[in-house]
Amino acid sequence: MTLDSRPSEARTRLLTTASKIFYSEGIHAVGVDRIVAEAKVTRATFYRHFPGKEDLILAYLREVHQMDRTQVDAAIAAGGRSPVDLLTAIAAAISARIQSPGFRGCAFLNAAAEYPDKDHPVHREIVAHRQWFLDTLTTLMAQVHAATAEPAARHFVMLRDGAMAAGCLNDPALVADTFLRGIEGLLRINSERNAAESAQPVG
């Protein structure tokens, strides 16, 4: 069978349907038959676009990754803002997501719980997404305080992960506020470090 990866209404419908169910109910719990039925396509159509369920899962995660990347890249490309403002904007977008209707945590962390094998293609896709996010934050943090860019970026990711997990267990508004306060403190500390070092006399 020839795989058809071209954009099409059927492929979009399959991916949209699967993404909604995977996120709300989990990946392993959902079979191809249900996706085909809810997307209103035939099994032949499904397999024309995706050789198997794993390929659909990878497409789902890549779609989520692209949405995240587009949002971050757009903020950076807009220009005219300091690194602190950009990092604050990224945090604000995360905060808004936590408080959005139907929020059920991070799609990648949820998928990681179902695919713990580090050699599995799905797990590798998750790691690639998280590495992109960490690298992006590290680049921005380096412009706030170069010496602590890497640990500060990891701190940001950990705050984000905690907020994503708590956001579907506790009051989302309270979790989002706590997360933003944590990011604000992280950025303030590193900005003050940079200012203090810049004020020191040379030589």
Score class of each variant (00 low, 15 high):
Ala146Ser: 14
Val84Gln: 13
Gly182Val: 02
Leu169Tyr: 10
Val32Pro: 00
Leu61Met: 09
Glu25Cys: 07
Glu184Met: 04
Ala91Leu: 03
Met1Asn: 11
Pro121Arg: 10
Ala149Val: 11
Arg43Met: 04
Ala112Thr: 03
Pro151Lys: 12
Ala59Trp: 06
Ile35Phe: 03
Tyr60Asp: 10
Glu38Ala: 03
Leu56Gln: 03
Val64Tyr: 06
Glu197Met: 09
Asp171His: 13
Phe156Ile: 06
Gly80Gln: 09
Thr148Lys: 12
Met67Gly: 13
Arg130Trp: 10
Ile183Glu: 00
Ala113Ser: 15
Ala37Tyr: 05
Thr148Phe: 09
Ser24Gly: 05
Ala128Thr: 11
Asp85Trp: 01
Gly185Trp: 04
Cys106Ala: 08
Gln99His: 06
Gln200Cys: 08
Met158Val: 13
Gln143Lys: 15
Met67Val: 15
Phe50Gly: 01
Val157Pro: 01
Ile183Leu: 01
Met141Ile: 05
Ala44Ile: 11
Ala89Asp: 10
Gly162Phe: 02
Thr16Tyr: 02
Ile98Tyr: 00
Val144Tyr: 02
Asp117Asn: 14
Ala176Met: 04
Ile126Glu: 00
Leu186Ser: 01
Gly31Ile: 02
Leu137Met: 13
Ala93Ser: 14
Ala10Met: 09
Thr42Gln: 06
Asp171Glu: 15
Phe50Val: 04
Leu14Ala: 06
Pro101Lys: 06
Asp73Ala: 14
